[in-house]
Amino acid sequence: MEDILIASSSQQPRQLSAEEIAEIEHEKTLYPDNKAVGLEALKIVQKHQGWVSDESLLAIARYLDLSVADLEGVATFFNLVYRQPVGKNVILFCNSVSCWIMGCEGVRSHINKTLGVDFGQTTEDNEFTFIPVPCLGDCDRAPVMMVGEDLHRNLTNDKVDTIVASYRAEHQE
């Protein structure tokens, strides 16, 4: 846990962008208090920045007048709030029971071998971060993973190769 210490006050908050502020202001209209907006703001910042740095967290806490420690507590609780930098694409790989029965471990080792990363790691070219995720709710088409916002089903090693190549190609354009 060393590198995810509570955002220290010695750090300077990042300047939130106009876009981020506009989206946070919109969320404010949907919830009766700022506390509830805090989690939304974390997600908004992550959408724009890729992850939530200490500087961003501090900025949100200041902007919404929330306790830094409370917001940090929320940020670290949720699986989908990234407190460390991630690659351009996050692979959320289901390793729950139905996918396990259908052989996801084999696909995992294939990714491990071909991309050189295991769970929690980012590829050297910063293209993919590989993260396990509980059941993605598509168990009848297991094994399953998401890359970014897209779901990929009935995975095989070959299929994974094609998927990986297509994301790489996208970024070379």
Partner: peptide, 19 residues
């Protein structure tokens, strides 16, 4: 933002309140 416990109805309410 992803945690199974959020499905438990009172934990869900805390999550909605930003806790």
């Amino acid at each position: 933002a992803g945690r199974y416990i959020c499905g438990e109805e009172t934990a869900l309410l805390n999550a909605l309140e930003g806790k």
